[in-house]
Design a protein around this nucleic acid. Sequence first.
RNA 1: GCCGACGUAGCUCAGUGGUAGAGCAACUGAUUCGUAAUCAGUAGGUCGUCAGUUCAAUCCUGACCGUCGGCACCA
Length: 642
Amino acid sequence: MPAIMLPDGSVRHFDAPVSGAALARAIGPGLARAALAMKLDGRLVDLSTTIGHDASVVFVTRRDPEALGLIRHDAAHVLAEAVQSLYPGTQVTIGPAIENGFYYDFARNEPFTPEDFPPIEAKMREIVAANAPFVREVWERDAAIAFFEARGERFKAELIRDLPASEEISFYRQGDWVDLCRGPHMRTTGDVGTAFKLMKVAGAYWRGDHRNPMLSRIYGTAWRDKAELDAYLHMLEEAERRDHRRIGREMGLFHLQEEAVGSVFWHPKGWRLYRRTEAYMRRRLDAAGYQEVRTPQLVDRSLWEASGHWEKFREHMFIASVEDEARTLALKPMNCPCHVQIFRQGVRSYRELPLRMAEFGSCHRYEPSGALHGIMRVRAFTQDDAHIFCTEAQVAPETARFVALLASVYRDLGFPDFSVKFSDRPPVRAGSDEVWDKAEAALIEACRLAGVEYTLNPGEGAFYGPKLEFVLRDAIGREWQCGTLQVDYILPDRLDAEYVAEDGTRRRPVMLHRAILGSFERFLGVMIEHYAGRFPLWLAPVQAVVTTVVSDADEYAAEVAAALREQGLVVEVDLGREKITAKIREHSLAHVPVILVVGRKEAEARTVALRRLGGEAQDVLPLDEAVARLAAEATPPDLRSA
RNA sequence: GCCGACGUAGCUCAGUGGUAGAGCAACUGAUUCGUAAUCAGUAGGUCGUCAGUUCAAUCCUGACCGUCGGCACCA
C-alpha cells in the first residue's frame, strides 16, 4: 500500500505496488510522455522500477540535468550494439557516460579508425529510430558468466566474476541486443535522440592498468538537442582557436624543437610575458614575507638518497656525470631538499618561524614522452615554489595567509573563479596515523580559518602529507589545477631540519610545500588560452602600435612612441606604406591591445586616435592624456594606487 | 611508456613510382590611402631521419625521431 510523495508535497496512495511509468500516467499524460527516469528516494532508477513501499519520487525529464547522463549512457549502449552488428567478433567491455559525452571500450584485433564513424553513426541512428524498449533483467551469476563466455565475451565474464557477491547482476536488453549493466536507463533507444556524434578513437588499457591489454575506445558526445550539440562543437572550435601552441607561434612567443624535447625556447615577446609575470610574483612574495633564494641545479645523489627521491623517483630524474669524477649528480626535480639545506645552516630559533623560503626554481623531470603537451607539460620548467618552515601551531594560520595570497594573485591575473580540492591520506604513505590525524586536522582547521570551501579528494594526498589543490576556471569553463599546498612532517625528519624551541629543546619544523602558479610554463600556457592571446595591457608583450595614415605623420608617430616608451610601455611603430585598413588588420591579428593611428589631423592637433583590440570605436584624444591613460592602465594591479 | 593518426615552403594545405604546387606570410617595386586584406613581380623545399625494394623513391616496405588525440603517468 505505497504512499508516494511528489516534489510538490502532494501524496498519492496506491493499493498495490506501482511502477514509475504507471505512477507518471496516474499523474498525467504530459508527464507520462516526458518522464525518462525517476529519482526514488533520491536514487536514480528506471521508470519500470516497481515502488512497493512508501517513498518520495521525482521524475526526470529531458529538461533536468540528470537527463544528460542518461542520454549519454544510453548512447554508449546504442554505440555498442551498432559496433557489434557491423563488426562481428568485437568484444564489448565498458561504456560509461563522461563529461560532455560517453565512450565505449571494445576489444578487437584491428583498432577502429575515424573512417569507421559514418557507418557506425548511421547504424546508431537506425537503432535509435527503432525505438526499442530498454528492458531490465536480473540474472543468476553463473548463468550470466556462462552466457558471455559462450559468446566469447571474456571481458564481460571477468567483470561479472569480480562483482561483489552482494551485487545483483542486471542486464539490459534493447531489441535483440543485450549488455551487462547496472543501469539505470531511459525507456527506449529513441529517448537517446539524434544530437550525438562520434568524436575520436583512442587506445585505453583494460581497467585502466598499463599491464593489461590495450582496448580500442570510441569517444562520442551526446546532448539533449541539436542546439546543445552545436554549442558544444562550437566550444571545441573555440578551444582550438585558443590553443597556446598556435597562439604562441602566431604571436612569436616561443617555440619547441626536436633537439630539446620538453624544453621551451622563449622568444623575446614570450620572454617579456614571462618576465612580467615573474616580476609580479616576486613583488607579491616579497610583500607577503617570503625570502627568495637560489639553489643548485646539479646536486649529488647522496642528497637525493637522503631525501628519498633516489629510491622513489629516480626514473623521473635526469642523471649527470663527468669522466674525471666519481660523483653521480642529478638535475633537481624539486627544490625542497635544497631549501632544507639552507634552513640547516646554523642554528634556527623558533623566533625565525614561520620562515618562508621562496625560489623560482628551475626543475627537470623526465616525463613520459606521451605526457608532453606544448608548454603545459614539459621536462624543464620553473616553479613559483616556496617552503614554509613552521611550528605545528602555525600550520593553520600560514595556510590561511597562503590561500588569501593565492586568491589575490589569481584575481589579478584574471582568474577570479577557482575551487579547492582536499586530498587526504593515500593508501601507501609515510608516517604514523597519529601524524596524519594531526596534519589533516590542521589543514581542515586552516580551511575553516580561511573560509575555504573544498571538495574531498579521498586518498589522493602526497605520500608525506595531505594537500590542497587549487583549480582555476578559464574563460571557456575549463578547469586547470595550478596551485598546491602540502603539509609535510616527513622531509624535515629525513633531512634532519630542526630549530630550538622556546623551552630550549630541539624540534622538527613542519614544512608547507606551496605553489600558486605551479610552473610558469604551464601557467603561461593556461593564460594564453584563457585570454586567447588578448592579454590585459599590463601583461601584453607588445602593448601598443603607433601607425600612420600618410607619411607626413611619420615624425609625429615617432614622437608618440617615444612619449609612451618614456612611461615604460613597449611600443612598435609601423610606418609601412600599406593602407591603414591593412595595418589595422595586421596588428589586430597580432593581438596588440592598443593601436594608435596618426595622420595629418593628429599631427597638427597633437592628438592620437586610439583603437582597442576587438573594438571598432576610435577615441581621439590629446597625446598627453592618451599617454597618461595608457600608462595607468599598464601599471600592474599590485602597483596601482587604490 | 602503450594504442592510433600524422610529418611536403615560415604558416595552412594540395600532389605524383620518372627528384614538386596553391593561398597567406617574406622580399622588391609601384601606390600617400582615415580604422580588419592596394596592385604587380621575385625568391623560397635533401618532401622528418636512416636503411631496404626498384633502372628510378617525396610516393612502396622497415626502423628510428618528433608532433597530435587518448590511455597510463603527473612525486
